[in-house]
Design a protein around this nucleic acid. Structure first.
Length: 515
RNA sequence: GCUCCGGUAGUAUAGCCAGGCCAAGUAUGCGGGCCUCUCGAGCCCGAGACCCGGGUUCAAAUCCCGGCCGGAGCACCA
């Protein structure tokens, strides 16, 4: 017995064994540097200022998988320190999204829970002489930063800074009048080190803590302290943060916290489907979409509507990506393929005839056939279709027919075409079964079929700035009556048309995921 | 503009740190065949890439320099 014979025998006897072997092989993530089993702590750090999208999902998955791989822990921590941007509904969007993906986090908190703690650390840094209250106007700060020069406030002594800091907290200054700056290095090549603002005054109510605080930490400060407190050991994030590693480490060094290992990579993007809010809004403003869960959008809700299943995103993230620093744009076909392979063995098959045209068959007696919902997965059961001598078929199939051809209505009968017109095809029943040279097509009985609408999403953008005016096509047709028991969210395959998710059972609206 | 960082088939990646086993592996897409009562899945075959130019070396996808192209950052956003 050679290896192939052995394999096929094994496949017959115990297919699970092979699958298992394959899964382990494929799902292996490269080892995480500096990782100790049981000690790894990662985090999901969403900013609740917009809907969760595929990029959040993939980054989240990576952080989650590595924690699991090393028997570690995961934090869900909302980076909600800009009261003006944060909205309540988005917190839940992320929780829902992560759950949908099967990510289980061990701990959850919001940065806004810890405002007083940030104050304590800020004070500590002021006492260290490493932070000062700056009163320079915005423009001046900017230009000094550019020149690499220090302003006069940097030389204030600790007591002065402590006094001003107290005034910031007590409301003696208005928003914009004073900020707390870290004494970094105005000459650093890394511009984030040039005395960044670490806390500022915000006179705006926060959705979670209201107007209780008027001084809010900025990103780098909040994140460094929180990562330290949470004991984060590994940060997997996109490369736009790369320049901040130095700053964040510096802040932790000042307060005696240890630093994590960073793994950074370029953003996950899909061709023609930007995640940027600006570009998505542009599509909405062009009147081409009106919801954030539009199936063409890269939001989690959009992906879900489109029939992309979480397992596919997981599998895709694990097997098709890497930690590349170069710009990348995934082709949708990569994700589709993974999605299709997971769906194929479990999706029920139905007959659907897009842009239908009538087919009349002579010498065919009415009857009923029983056919399987899946060609090989018997557990999906069978369905019945009754028929007369009148059918609908896809006009696409009809276009390829001419008088004299023989075609086959799948599972039913062979038909010799006697006439083809724009409005109708006629044929006569002929005996015989499926054969090599006879095309097999889908059909529905004309007396018992249902009107179905299928939304077919395409890319939003044709290139960087050019919006695709035809990103959503609508295909209408008839489907066999059995589709009535398809529930919302079920993904089925309309044979020779594609995998489609049921979006509305009542209105019989489907969304095509892919072929 | 300044500062970082990248560039392997159409796309996404492995390999690069520790040069030779790479006439470059994998997935997807594409072409062809088999199988199948789907244009899906599965199986088999095929075409397809180391950005360019120098240098180091017996030997470079891998190291060095220059060029070109691309990305990120340059907030009192995250």
């Amino acid at each position: 017995m050679d290896i192939n014979e052995q394999k096929s025998l094994l496949e017959e006897l115990a297919p699970d064994l092979l699958l298992y072997e394959k899964k382990i092989e494929e799902k292996k993530l490269p080892p995480l540097p500096n990782a100790v089993r049981g000690r790894v702590v990662t985090r999901l750090p969403p900013e609740p200022s917009g809907y969760m999208h595929i990029g959040h999902a993939m980054s989240g998955l990576l952080n989650y998988f590595y924690a699991r791989m090393y028997d570690g822990r995961v934090w869900l921590r909302f980076e909600d320190t800009d009261p003006r941007k944060v909205k309540l509904e988005y917190y839940e969007s992320f929780r829902r999204g992560y759950k949908w993906l099967g990510i289980e986090w061990d701990y959850e908190k919001n940065n806004s829970d810890d405002i007083e703690l940030f104050y304590d650390y800020a004070e500590k840094i002021i006492e260290l002489g490493k932070a000062y209250v700056c009163f320079c106007p915005h423009e001046k700060i900017k230009s000094y930063r550019k020149k690499g020069e220090e302003c006069e406030h940097r030389s204030q002594d600790v007591d002065e800074n402590l006094k001003y800091w107290g005034m910031m907290l007590s409301g003696r200054f208005r928003e914009g009048e004073a900020i707390l700056r870290l004494a970094g290095d105005m000459k650093s090549k890394n511009t984030t080190m040039r005395d960044p603002a670490i806390l500022r005054i915000v006179e705006y109510s926060h959705p979670l803590v209201g107007a209780r605080y008027r001084v809010w930490p900025l990103y780098d400060f909040a994140v460094s302290i929180e990562d330290g407190i949470c004991g984060i050991t590994h940060i997997l994030r996109t490369s736009e943060f790369a320049l901040r590693d130095e700053l964040q480490n510096y802040i932790r060094d000042l307060v005696g916290m240890s630093n994590p290992t960073y793994i950074e990579y370029s953003r996950f993007e899909f061709k023609g489907t930007p995640v940027s809010k600006r570009k998505l809004r542009a599509v909405m403003e062009a009147g081409l979409a009106d919801r954030w869960d539009d199936p063409r959008f890269p939001t989690i809700e959009g992906l879900k509507k489109r029939g992309i299943i979480p397992e596919a995103i997981k599998e895709f993230t694990l097997t098709q990506t890497g930690f590349s620093y170069a710009k990348r744009e995934y082709d949708w076909s990569l994700l589709y393929s993974v999605n299709r392979k997971i769906l194929d063995p479990v999706a029920r098959r139905f007959f659907f005839t897009p842009n239908p045209i009538k087919l009349k068959i002579e010498q065919l007696e009415s009857g009923e056939i029983t056919i399987p919902y899946h060609p090989t997965n018997r557990s999906l059961g069978v369905r019945k279709i009754s028929y007369t001598d009148e059918f609908y078929i896809s006009s696409l199939d009809a276009e390829n027919m001419k008088t004299g051809d023989t075609i086959r209505l799948k599972y039913l009968t062979n038909v010799k075409i006697t006439n083809v017109s724009r409005y109708e095809v006629t044929g006569i029943r002929v005996s015989g079964g499926p054969a090599q040279n006879i095309p097999i097509i889908q059909w529905v009985p004309s007396h018992k079929c249902l009107n179905v609408k299928v939304l077919v999403p395409d890319v939003l953008y044709l290139d960087e700035e050019e919006i695709n005016p035809e990103s959503l096509k609508i295909v209408e047709g008839y489907a066999e009556e059995n589709i009535v028991d398809i529930k919302v969210d079920e993904i089925v395959q309309f044979e020779r048309f594609g995998f489609c998710r049921c979006d509305s059972a009542d209105d019989r609206i489907f969304i095509k995921a892919h072929d």
